[in-house]
């Protein structure tokens, strides 16, 4: 594979074709914050905290470093006023959902994010998808998935699979950046709550 030359924070970097900006930056010691990244999982681009500014052919844009493949002569900046502002807002929104999350609070301190900026809506989920993707990609158990969309999107276990697979695994619990108990809570709920209308057969039509 051919080597591609690009610039990250003023440093000349040679990276193999197909690698992402994030990996290229790490290879020269430039650190970019991440929340939804995990070494065993495919990059997801869910949290956007790794947003960086790229300039190619005179155009500048903000992209997710964990997904964006390196390009020839790309000029990447990982820390600008604009990026700090974006990361600060993202963190503030995520903190409204998970005010006590340690990884979030650490980043909040660095970027000056105010955890009380938005009204609290403690769902304890920032939709990073770590638990869902781990269950699908690594364990291949598919016991866990997202349901609904937009503001109502949440994680949900499938009771039939969870009752067989989850008790001996629980590996997703510790991946959670907001609280190790979030997945546990939803799991217990799935296994103990009375069946939802969706899982119940209907009297009038069988």
């Amino acid at each position: 594979m051919s080597e591609i030359l690009l610039q990250i924070d003023g440093k000349e970097v040679a990276a193999e074709e197909g690698t992402t900006i994030l990996v290229a930056a790490q290879s020269v010691g430039v650190s970019i914050p991440t929340l939804c990244l995990h070494e065993k999982l495919e990059p997801y681009g869910g949290c956007r905290v790794c947003s960086v500014e790229v300039e190619s052919r005179g155009r500048s844009s903000v992209v997710a470093a964990c997904l964006y493949p390196v390009e020839k002569d790309l000029v990447v900046t990982t820390r600008t006023e604009k990026l700090d502002r974006i990361r600060k807002s993202l963190l503030e929104m995520m903190l409204a959902h998970a005010p006590d999350s340690e990884p979030l609070l650490e980043l909040a301190e660095e970027y000056g994010a105010d955890k009380d900026r938005f009204e609290k809506e403690a769902s304890f989920c920032i939709h990073c998808g770590l638990c869902v993707r781990y269950c699908t990609e690594v364990k291949k158990a598919n016991a866990l998935g997202f349901i609904n969309r937009g503001a109502k999107k949440e994680i949900s276990f499938i009771p039939e699979i969870a009752s067989k697979e989850c008790w001996d695994c629980k590996e997703c619990f510790e991946l959670c950046p907001t609280s190790a108990l979030q997945a546990a809570f939803v799991l217990i709920e799935a296994l103990t709550a009375p069946p939802q209308p969706t899982t119940k057969s209907c009297h009038s039509c069988g």
Partner: peptide, 17 residues
């Protein structure tokens, strides 16, 4: 996987469970 089907069927309003 069922998790994927549930993701899709709850995403689109067309589908009713």
């Amino acid at each position: 996987p069922m998790s994927r089907i549930r993701h899709i069927t709850t995403f689109y309003k067309t589908f009713s469970l």
